[in-house]
Write a protein that binds this DNA or RNA. Structure first.
Lengths: 233, 233
DNA sequence: GCAGCCAAAAAGTCAGACTTATTTGTCACG
DNA sequence: CGTGACAAATAAGTCTGACTTTTTGGCTGC
């Protein structure tokens, strides 16, 4: 997606990564570099590069005379966007969405509070623009257009927080929102109450009301959690 | 630290990673693999593996005919524990600690609330044990022993939350706490009020009082933030 | 001034030989 | 029997050199 064809080793990762994150090789499984190279029909150098990347994600560990062993799930770098994408594409996608939505519910309200304190005029404008875009597409089966503005809105909040760690979750949130629209059951039109809340958050941020921005955003994320509980209990 | 001597490419990363994250090569800078291989006195294959790892962290991008270009900071995988460690070792360490402490202040209260709902008896026991260890080492210049229990406490909370994403922040929090004790000015003994709060959190979790656990933990993280504002304004 | 082509540059790929660490098994000795 | 040391097997690690591919930038000619 972000970097589609970045060489042979990338192609190897595109299939091996999802396989590992999907649990096809249980923790402790041992892979041999030579066998993998044969399987993907690449040279060992290319295979080694792929293994190094998996190793840097803590998905596997390469040890002499043993091979490439799959690490337990608890040790994976689950914040790596690539790992997140692989896991969201896999079969325990609902579990992932719950974890990530819970993360959102912790981060986004705080980020909104910070945004109310630090947002520039441009960022406030961007925010209201996104909110208006959501309103404009909230009726009439325009889920795709709505999604675009929804993603942009949350990304704008996280950016405006002024905190680098929060800002870097923009991709994750976008992934979650996109997943909700595309793969899970969603009503034909978004919840009108949610749309209103987004507009109010934009207003609160512009007004510099941190407490209100935080509280309203909390309502949004709680709504997202409830939605998940209803649709995938 | 976690995997010290994992081969030649690891040694290369140990010096090249910190250099890049420290901003010694400004975004857009171009490195050549051959030159790097010469500089570190390793073969090109080894150098390529190192570059692949840096690429997977989004620190650099390798493009044909142009070379290995350093990416802008905003694109780095700042949640990668390795990247966090490199940056904390660098010169903008104070800025890092502020970002990470803000992240803590968003995550940990929510995690504590979840822990109060989901913690097992064993986890509650572990928690109170850690809190008692903190109390026992809160006086008499035993900062190192105190730190061990403090790290274990917060890790226990995050684990007990039952959320994978929260749990994986245990290393980050430990790193922040260790950094505060080792590098920044810290009083000879920890703040007694903070120690008490930890004990109370353990109690609240055991009692299953989610609201109280969350509120108390929020007080702890607010304290940590204020401490940073005082010591590095 | 522009279109298209050519040449250089740097990453990408491959194959093969060699090195090194680690495990496992064996055998002799207590 | 157990135990320790030694030897063999194994798979990752490393290096080298030749070759390919893509991209860029300049040059030519219209």
């Amino acid at each position: 997606m972000s970097t589609p064809g970045r060489g042979l080793h990338g192609h190897v990762l595109d299939t091996l990564g999802p396989e590992i994150t999907a649990g096809e090789y249980p923790p402790g499984s041992v892979l041999r570099t030579d066998e993998l190279a044969q399987r993907f029909d690449v040279s060992r150098s290319v295979m080694r590069e792929a293994v190094r990347v998996l190793e840097s994600m803590h998905l596997v560990q390469s040890r002499r005379r043993v091979g490439v062993t799959v690490r337990p799930t608890a040790e994976w770098n689950v914040y790596d966007p690539q790992v997140i994408r692989w896991r969201l594409a896999g079969k325990d996608r609902p579990r992932q969405l719950r974890s990530l939505t819970l993360l959102r519910s912790a981060i986004e309200p705080v980020a909104a509070g910070l945004a109310a304190r630090h947002a520039t005029a441009e960022q406030c404008a961007e925010l209201t623009e996104c909110a208006l875009g959501m309103v404009a597409n909230s009726r009439g089966h325009k889920l795709e257009e709505y999604l675009v503005h929804d993603m942009a809105f949350h990304r704008a909040i996280l950016d405006a927080s002024g905190n680098e760690m929060f800002a870097r979750l923009g991709d994750v949130v976008a992934e979650v929102l996109a997943g909700r629209t595309h793969h899970d059951v969603m009503f034909e039109d978004p919840d009108p109450a949610a749309v209103t809340l987004h507009v109010q958050v934009a207003e609160a941020v512009r007004a510099g009301d941190a407490v209100r921005a935080e509280e309203l955003t909390r309502e949004i994320t709680v709504g997202a959690l409830q939605e998940l509980d209803i649709l995938a209990p």
